[in-house]
Design a protein around this nucleic acid. Structure first.
Lengths: 234, 234
DNA sequence: CCAAAAGTGTTCTCCATACACCCATGC
DNA sequence: GCATGGGTGTATGGAGAACACTTTTGG
């Protein structure tokens, strides 16, 4: 390609472009975030968000999925772009602009596969993360805030729970993320009246008290309602 | 820098990285968006969002401000990152990833300067834009949706109005963006009770009827209230 | 039978909405 | 004096918040 055709484009140095994934999962102990231990400099031995460089033939979202798959073997329930971080000095080697992604995983449903495929990825409690490489602490914080905000007006909480869940599990998830207790009766009334949960003829197993009924998120119904102007909000 | 130290970083081709700005302004005729006419291929003669390539020594936000300044001479009231567009084929020349920014301008206050410095930039009514170069139609649409959503829960509407404005101007802005009429008494009550407007001892000039009182957005007061848990919402 | 959580309705308060008239000003 | 928009208060309905007891099950 000749320089004269595109004088403003090709003659300058280019930054490198990477993707990084802030991936949340939920288990019995609470909310977790997925980190990997870096093998290479810079920050060798440090914990960091999974990620890597974008290839020329793939879109950003494809790159994010690929890197997550390669480094952790994970299949995500939900993925969206988070923010692009481009401070000049964020990588000590060179100019690297990173497009951060926000991902949610049904950790309990995929526990077996995730464990067998685990490589060096580890789930950390979100409030007990080590210092991270680069500006990944900042990226993680932005991701966590996105989760806490978005859960109020988008039904993404279901992407963290198992496919079949109890209303208690759902309520506890919201209580954790909203950082305040919710009234049980009001919560149940609210969520059931929305008509986006499918009541199953099953109850939870292995609890030492009355077993709670299981529900499923009725995504088809939800999409239908959204078309009619329905607004999810908790 | 040796290849062996950073094997995954430097040996691959890099995409180019640009910034593009979706800039909104408001005048007597309504909401406008700022476009420029491209001089060069590809899409020479086409309208496009102002923007250009990120330089190695500047952050993304700096690049966005610089490009806007260079191409339009504008000083923005508000600037935030919008979204990063990275489809492989979005630029026919080469792989170009663009970080889109969302900007608001007090068009009426800066009318004089903007005009004298106007270069080839033109304000188009948002619902009468021509077909744009690259994927800029899509970027514009995402920007417009951001404006329409964000105005409900962030006081960014004030960044489109003159510093001194009437309640009618404010209400009309909301009516345009929310696409529905608002009740005058309820609107005034609501916004005044928030305590974020400073009532001035001035009225508008040059109208053929009773002149309306002027107000200013009391940003200091707003920030104070936010610290105390206040949530702007219309 | 005891511990633990499931499940269930009603009341009250407050906020959002709906609504109409007189006033001030410029021409 | 007339046209144009400025400015003001009240009544009603509905949604959110507060609140306690009985039931079921496993150990």
């Amino acid at each position: 390609m000749s320089k004269s055709n595109h004088p403003f484009c090709y003659e300058y140095a280019r930054p490198a472009v990477s993707v990084d994934c802030v991936t949340f999962g939920l288990d019995e102990d609470g909310l977790k975030v997925l980190l990997i231990e870096r093998k290479l400099e810079p920050f060798a031995g440090c914990w960091a968000l999974p990620g890597g460089f974008v290839e020329m033939h793939e879109s950003l979202e494809t790159a994010a999925k690929r890197e997550l798959e390669e480094e952790t073997g994970l299949k995500v329930e939900y993925l969206e772009q988070l923010f692009t971080f481009g401070d000049v000095q964020r990588d000590p080697r060179d100019r690297v602009i990173t497009v951060a992604y926000f991902a949610l995983v049904k950790l309990t449903d995929h526990a077996v596969e995730a464990a067998s495929d685990a490589r060096q990825a580890v789930w950390f409690p979100v409030d007990e993360t080590p210092d991270l490489a680069f500006d990944h602490d900042q990226i993680l914080q932005v991701g966590f805030e996105r989760l806490r905000n978005k859960i109020r007006y988008q039904p993404i909480g279901f992407d963290l729970l198992p496919k079949k869940f109890t209303l208690r599990q759902l309520q506890q998830l919201y209580e954790h993320l909203l950082r305040r207790p919710l009234d049980k009766r009001n919560f149940r009334k609210r969520i059931l009246e929305m008509g986006i949960l499918q009541e199953l003829d099953e109850v939870e197993q292995g609890v030492a008290h009355r077993a709670a009924r299981l529900y499923r998120f009725h995504e088809r119904q939800y999409n239908q309602l959204v078309k009619q102007g329905f607004n999810f909000e908790i």
